[in-house]
Design a protein around this nucleic acid. Structure first.
Lengths: 276, 276
DNA sequence: CAGGCTTGTTCCAGTATATGGAACTATGTT
DNA sequence: AACATAGTTCCATATACTGGAACAAGCCTG
């Protein structure tokens, strides 16, 4: 063990706590977090105190913890200033008009897909139902599409961390079957979700990859099985691929030499050397 | 100096970095952050590396930094599971139907109001335009309303940190004039924003305070000056106050003995003793 | 195109700060 | 009343953060 020595010290631990609290359905008590993280009591206690003081967590009267609002503030800028989202938006809309179904934009982060934007019919939904929601990559269309464009070493590393929880009867249960499907996806250029995450829900997705930005994600068209057949999804596949390719290209253009939305003189070095 | 010794150590510094990057209009470069925080180069460099590794920041090809998506993921739960928002939602809607104008729900955090929800006419807006947005408390309706229910020691502490940036000709420029208005607000039970933050925009607001949750915020009805007169706002004031009072009461009921949305057995102690 | 300037990266000794085991207090259970 | 459970505090120790200073690399400017 001790292979990947969380190089981020205190910060890493703090984020691990946030992760536990934010991903839990209900407010977490001290002991819940303690057991989830297996940190020493003293350490965790101090850490929680700090997180509360920083406004990242809030402690309720019954002493349990839930995510604090400061996170919302941070996320606002993270979302509203996101160029990926801005650039993709019109293409999402176009896809929605073409298909009449819900369109998602998502980004791969470790083993998860984080949904960044969404276009759906009934615009009654606010904070668009699941912007910011994270779903496992191995059982979602965008997730598998994104995985398919990963260098195989990365795919290896990431899939090693997956849990393969069986959400439906059709969910992948091991890396092996996932790899097999990813091989297909690499060939086809698009991925399906055949009710693997939620029953009665399926989608087609295509990957978007911009190495310069370390950005890997994708877009998808999603619908209920009773209305959207696999044949229908297959028919849409090329449109989805086209949209993905267009977004990818525009991102490349508008980031490299570009100015525009915070273009800034690109002082590219011989090789990307980030803090390590 | 050195009065309030940021008790949160490493975490505090990391959040200060996030704050700088998230609040800046454009991506921040190393030196920008360096000057904003006046931390030693080595320290900051390592910290940025950690933040990137954790996905809280993203480094662009030109080496500048912008907020990472992981923040969006955290915020999703922070918002979707927020009881304050859930409970207030129907009252916001009612106020909107009554007035026809935009209704906001906000929470006070230090010197800022963070907007948590919003109801407006044209529901075309997604991620509702400014959910998660933070505005200064001293020049917004909800902000001043919230400040008015603070114990005066707290008001003192918080207002000492304010910057009193003059957004419009009518913005408060010092704590003195603000205090004077707050005295009025305490008496009336509601606050106005008379084009103090944005020209041509005004609002009425009422405070919401639930000490058990350390929750102080408010709701407001906002409109453009050409359509909404001060007299009109004054007429709405009692409705806003009523809504605020109703929300406050429901929060008290549903949190104390309540079960419901993660009610949990309230193990209230002799005195609230949080980690310090 | 050489010299100065700005920006970002790396190194390392010193020490402040986080660590974590263990004892303690408070609350609820048998 | 004794036990069990949940949360809080304490403190010697060492790890991980600190921050000055040197280094590397792009960028002017004369």
């Amino acid at each position: 063990m001790g292979r990947d020595t969380e190089g981020t010290g205190t910060l890493g631990k703090a984020m691990a706590v946030l992760e536990v609290v934010a991903m839990a359905e209900r407010p977490q008590r001290f002991t819940d977090i303690l057991m989830a993280l297996r940190q020493p009591r003293g350490t965790l206690h101090r850490l929680l105190g700090h997180l509360v003081e920083e406004g990242l967590l809030v402690q309720r009267p019954d002493l349990s913890y839930e995510p604090g609002l400061r996170l919302l503030k941070f996320a606002y800028r993270s979302w509203s200033g996101n160029r990926f989202r801005e650039i993709a938006a019109p293409y999402l809309l176009k896809l929605h008009q073409l298909t009449g179904e819900t369109v998602h934009l998502g980004v791969l982060r470790e083993t998860e897909i984080i949904y960044v934007d969404k276009v759906e019919s009934q615009q009654t939904v606010r904070m668009s139902s699941q912007i910011g929601k994270a779903s496992p990559a191995y059982c979602t269309g965008i997730g598998k599409a994104a995985l398919s464009v990963l260098p195989s070493s990365e795919l290896q590393r990431i899939s090693a961390r997956m849990e393969f929880r069986p959400f439906t009867p059709k969910t992948h249960r091991s890396a092996e079957t996932l790899y097999a499907e990813i091989a297909e996806i690499r060939h086809d250029g698009h991925a399906f979700d055949r009710e693997e995450h939620e029953a009665e829900i399926c989608c087609v997705a295509a990957p978007i990859s911009v190495p310069d930005h370390d950005l890997i994600g994708g877009i998808s068209v999603t619908g209920p099985s009773y209305r959207v057949s696999l044949a229908q999804l297959t028919a849409w596949a090329q449109d989805v691929r086209k949209a993905a390719a267009d977004i990818e290209e525009e991102l490349r253009i508008r980031s490299g030499p570009g100015r525009e939305t915070g273009g800034e003189t690109p002082r590219v070095r011989s090789d990307a050397q980030r803090p390590r």
